[in-house]
């Protein structure tokens, strides 16, 4: 079974590291995975996105024209990518920053006040981890344990950072 997800937002919101975390988690689970970031001038312009594909079989293309899951961390991404989602797909919106109304009735919309929840934790930077927690819970594409494991690997010896990121992950995970 092949699933594809697209994660988008402003540069600096940690959308690429969210995607990487999911990809690492899938790899830890022994599955095939591809991760493709937007690159070059597009990124320099201030918006970033990445595509992750996970499958138990070979993955033909790392590009997603109609992903099952889209995460929009900001308003421009919500507007740009709302029409890309497959029918029946999930649309994760960072409701702290996204005000636009999504008019599609064939997808499920998941509101996550990621920035607000991160601020409540005292570290606004981990909004992406709040979203990642909620995404993991709601999408079920990877195990939450694998996400934690991947995070610990990425951050290595930075114990303090791991703690705050884990807290945010758990908070997002427990939202739904």
């Amino acid at each position: 079974m092949l699933v594809k997800m697209l994660i988008a937002g402003f540069g600096g919101q940690g959308v690429l590291s969210m995607g990487l975390n999911i990809a690492e988690a899938a790899m830890l689970e022994g599955r095939n995975v591809t991760y493709l970031p937007s690159y070059g001038a597009e990124v320099r312009g201030g918006t970033a996105n990445c595509t992750v594909a996970i499958s138990d079989e070979e993955i033909a293309s790392p590009v997603a024209s109609s992903p099952e899951f889209v995460v929009a961390m900001n308003q421009p991404s919500a507007i740009k990518f709302q029409h890309h989602i497959q029918s029946g797909g999930l649309f994760f919106l960072n409701s702290s920053l996204v005000e636009t109304e999504i008019l599609r009735g064939d997808i499920e919309i998941v509101h996550v006040p990621a920035n607000k929840m991160a601020e409540e934790l005292g570290s606004p930077k981990v909004a992406n981890m709040v979203m990642l927690g909620a995404f993991t819970r709601k999408s079920g594409v990877v195990e939450f344990d694998s996400v934690i494991q991947a995070l610990r690997h990425t951050l290595g010896s930075k114990k303090k950072l791991i703690d705050v990121n884990e807290k945010a992950l758990v908070k997002g995970y427990e939202l739904y």
Partner: peptide, 19 residues
């Protein structure tokens, strides 16, 4: 659902790296 600390094999058993 509450989450409890993971018990996964240590990373060293995975010979692949995401690159």
């Amino acid at each position: 659902m509450r989450w409890s600390a993971p018990r996964l094999p240590s990373r060293s058993t995975v010979s692949k790296v995401l690159m």
